[in-house]
Computed example of a mutant assay.
Amino acid sequence: MTSNAIGAALAFGVPLLILCINKTSNKFIKVLSAIEIALIVVTVFLLSSRGSILALTITAVYLFLFKKGKIKMIYMGTPVLLILSFIFLKVELLKETFELTLKRISSSGLNGREDLWSEGFKLIKSNPIYGIGARNGEHMDFHNPLLHISVHYGLIAAIPITVIILSPLFIFVRFKVYRDKSAVIMMGTYIAIIVQSSFEAILTPLITGVLGWYFIGLVYGYLLMTIKSYRDKKRSDMEDLKCNY
C-alpha cells in the first residue's frame, strides 16, 4: 500500500473517533480516542500525503463550522500536540520528514495529474458511451474515480456510480439529517473520502477501493438509520397526540 492509501485509511477514521468521543461517557475511552486522533494527524503529516492532509484539513473545517464545544477543542488541540511532538522529539528522521512534507505542500502543480486528467478527457470524447474497455490501459489510474470509470467503462457506468457516490450528500440535505449531531460527524468521513479520492487513486484500486466504498456504505447506512429513527419518533409523537385527544 502507498502512503496515500495509508493516509486515506487514517483520515477516514478520524470522524469515527470523534463520534466515539461524542457518544461514550467513559472518560478513559474519550482520552484514548483523542490521543488516537492526535497520533493520526501526526502520522498523516509524516507520510507526506498531500491528499490525506487536505482531506483532514477540509474535514476539520467542516466540523468546526457545524459544531462547537468539544469538537472545536479537539481540532484546536491537535495542532498544538503536533507542534509539541516536533519540539520534544528532536529526531533527525522527523526533521527530514517534516521538511519534505512542507516542501510537498508548498510545491506548485499537481505532479502531472493535470496532464493525466487532460488525457482522460480526450479518451472519453473518443469513447463516451462504453469507454476504452477494462483491459485497455489497465495499469493507468487517473487519480479520480469518476474520470477513471468514465475512461474505462464509459458514461453508461459512470452515471450510476456518480449517483451512488452522491447519494449520502443528497440524503443528508434532502431529509435534513444535519439536525442530528452524530450524522454531522459521520458525514466528516464522507467528506474526507470525496476530497482525497478527487486527487488520489483511492476508490478505484482493489484494496484501498474496498476500504473507501466500505466507509461510504457505512455513512449511507447511518444516515438511513437516522432518518428511520426520526420518522419513528414523529409517528410515536403523533400517536401520543391522538391518545391525548
Rank of each mutant, 00 (worst) to 15 (best):
V173M: 05
G221E: 09
T162E: 04
R235Q: 10
G109M: 09
K23F: 10
T226N: 02
D232S: 11
L166T: 10
K95S: 12
L123Q: 07
A183W: 00
T24Q: 05
T59D: 07
K90G: 15
S25C: 07
I216L: 14
R235Y: 07
Y130Q: 04
I53V: 13
Y62L: 08
K23V: 15
L89C: 11
R135C: 13
E114M: 13
D180K: 04
A5T: 00
N22M: 14
V184T: 15
V61F: 13
K23A: 14
Q196H: 09
G13H: 10
L65F: 15
F45G: 05
S48H: 09
I227G: 09
S197R: 02
T189I: 05
G112R: 06
G212V: 09
Y178C: 10
I53E: 11
V151M: 05
K125Q: 09
G137C: 02
L146C: 11
Y220H: 08
A11E: 03
D232Y: 04
Y214N: 12
H152V: 05
G209Q: 00
S33G: 04
T226Q: 01
D237P: 00
I207K: 00
L32M: 10
A38C: 13
G13A: 15
L32E: 07
I6T: 02
A183E: 00
D115W: 07
T208A: 01
L100F: 07
I53R: 00
I202G: 01
C243W: 02
I37N: 01
G217F: 06
F86P: 02
Y230D: 10
L203F: 12
M73Y: 08
A11L: 03
I83P: 06
L65Y: 15
L223I: 15
V41E: 05
S197Y: 07
G209E: 01
I58A: 12
Y214W: 08
V61S: 08
K30H: 06
I83A: 15
F170C: 05
I171M: 12
P145E: 11
K67H: 13
E239R: 05
R174E: 05
K23E: 14
K103H: 14
G120D: 12
L211F: 15
P128E: 13
A157F: 12
V151W: 01
L206A: 11
N136C: 02
L82E: 03
I40N: 04
M73H: 03
I132W: 02
Y214K: 02
G112D: 09
